[in-house]
Nucleic acid binder design. Structure first.
Length: 498
RNA sequence: GAGAGCGUAGCUCAGCCGGUAGAGCAACUGACUUUUAAUCAGUAGGUCAUGGGUUCGAAUCCCAUCGCUCUCACCA
């Protein structure tokens, strides 16, 4: 005997057998990917509409639904089909389903997308079900579904083949639905506060507004280097100068050519806003209203579980000046230290390794990051940052080494950064030139002074509070996601040939 | 960039003090037919990430490469 297959025998290779079934279907029913099919309700609408149907009861109603086949029992007599909203059980029995429809059953594989028209009932066991009268093949699949019980567990495949992850992992699906809800919630909140959404360049000729390595590209027709933005800050401030609105915001991607980690993706979503005639304390209130409102909208309460921690987004958040926080933890009173040299000596005496050229402010910020940041689990505003590391913030009156800046920390992560925005044109120019010199000293030779921005500030920017929110991290906190890759649909990966 | 760990069937995982590859799900053939991770019997499916090395013999030990994960560094 040869190993040749007979006419009817199908291959046991899962993808090959699907191709064979597809060929057979093309011969018997024609169009396997029909363009027109309309359901009368979604699976969730179906479940809601017939929630009152008692077990072992039938409805007179005939409905049309559609979905992907997730489960098949008793040789296809029972099938579960899922659409994005939920699942429905389909029943095909010789007493209720015409021969023509049942003939399709052997051709249906797990993962195929079908449409079903039939009568509504609830089974004796309480499962809402449709007695199929017509079954329509809407999409024949060529690849098998991942294992039905465990779903797709391989972390690499979950990121590379996100469609399979969401198709089989309910928690992943929910998380991305929540992401969408959070982003639109931010937008609604900001609009409700009177902010106008604007869009500023992501492709920039001069990058600025933050300290980070950019992605560099080239515009062929203009014949010039361009950069993907590391921050929208300078353009949003130019918008504020314009008087288009006293309150502007933008939700969009920033790109930073730096390390990748569970909290860093090279492209990430930032919400940045500027509020004229407000200051950084007004912004603190804005952050608190935003965070608390989002937590409540997702969880129904400001109290959120993250891993083994309980986090309360109930405002107002704890507020602590950075020098006080450092003093509390290490005993070092930076406000009493006068010079950079003394600051380095004090840090060294406390066991910190400091660089020779560090300033007072750099020492303070370093010790804060080493000793305090990790303790900030509950949402907290850390205020009074050193001026040397804050080129866009106004001085604290009477304390020229500190600025009106705060960062909001939660679960030891920076999730927000805000200032009373510097609008003194001469001071702004001085600080940006200083930053530029430092950048060049570090070998960052692409960094340029943004004269168009400075020119706009010369025109007069109203006093304003500004804020940046790391949207992905906020979503992680609100959806209990341990990695930023769990909240970004298609996180950055190395290329890999399949 | 550094360190640690992982990579076995389409999917979820065993096997790893060296002796030539296993289960469940999915698939196929059939049985059964009001099931709920349906059940029962049978069949097929693997260059054990890739390339070298040690050995009579390597999924297993060693080296390199690729990919991933975690930690650290970088990231105001």
């Amino acid at each position: 005997m040869t190993e040749q297959k007979t006419e009817t025998a199908l291959s046991s290779d899962p993808t090959e057998v699907r191709r064979q079934k597809l060929d057979q279907l093309r011969k018997t029913i024609g169009d396997v990917y029909p363009a027109h099919f309309h359901r009368t309700l979604t699976n969730a609408e179906f479940a809601e509409k017939y929630a009152g149907l008692e077990p072992d009861q039938e409805s007179e109603d005939i409905v049309t639904v559609a979905g992907r086949v997730y489960s098949s029992r008793n040789s296809g007599m029972f099938m579960d089909i899922h659409d994005a909203s939920g699942k429905i059980q389909i029943f095909s029995h010789k007493d209720t389903t015409p021969e023509e429809a049942r003939a399709l059953l052997p051709m249906i594989d797990l993962g195929d997308i079908i449409g079903v028209k039939g009568q509504v009932r609830r089974t004796k066991r309480g499962e809402l079900t449709i007695n199929a009268h017509e079954i329509t093949m809407l999409t024949k699949t060529l690849l098998p579904m991942p294992e039905k019980y465990h779903g797709l567990a391989d972390i690499e495949l979950r990121y590379r083949k996100r469609h399979l992850d969401i198709l089989t992992n309910e928690d992943s699906k929910l998380r991305f639905q929540q992401r969408s809800k959070i982003v639109s919630g931010i937008r609604r909140f900001m609009e409700g506060e009177g902010f106008l959404e604007v869009e500023t360049p992501m492709l920039q000729t001069i990058y600025g507004g933050a300290t980070a390595d950019p992605f560099k590209t080239f515009h062929n027709t203009l014949k010039m280097d361009m950069y993907l933005r590391i921050a929208p800050e300078l353009y949003l401030k130019r918008t504020l100068v314009s008087g288009l609105s006293d309150k502007v915001f933008e939700i969009n991607r920033n790109f930073r050519n730096e390390g990748v980690s569970t909290r860093h993706n090279p492209e990430f979503t930032m919400m940045e806003c500027y509020w004229a005639y407000a200051d950084y304390e007004d912004i603190m209130g804005l952050v608190e209203r935003l965070f608390e409102g989002l937590a409540v909208s997702i969880h129904g309460t400001p109290d959120v579980t993250f891993g083994d921690k309980q986090i309360s987004f109930k405002g107002p958040f704890k507020r602590v000046p950075m020098p006080d926080a450092v003093k509390d933890v290490t005993g070092i009173d930076f406000l009493a230290i006068k010079t950079d040299e003394e600051a380095r000596a004090a840090a060294k005496a406390a066991g910190f390794e400091v660089e020779k050229d560090w300033t007072w402010g750099e020492c303070l910020a370093f010790i804060f990051e080493e000793k305090v940041e990790g303790t900030l689990i509950q949402p907290s505003h850390v205020t009074h940052f050193p001026k040397d590391i804050s080129p866009f913030a106004k001085e604290v009156p009477g304390e020229p080494r500190l600025v009106e800046r705060f960062e909001t920390y939660c679960n030891a992560w920076e999730v927000g950064n805000a200032f009373s925005e510097l609008n003194d044109p001469e001071e702004q120019r001085r600080r940006m030139v200083e930053q530029l010199e430092q950048a060049h000293a570090r070998g960052e030779k692409d960094k340029q002074l943004d004269d168009e921005f400075l020119d706009a500030i010369d025109q007069g920017m109203p006093p304003a509070g500004g804020l940046g929110i790391g949207v992905d991290r906020l979503i992680m906190l609100l959806t209990n996601a341990p990695s930023i890759r769990d909240v970004i649909l298609f996180p950055a990966r190395r290329n890999k040939a399949d």
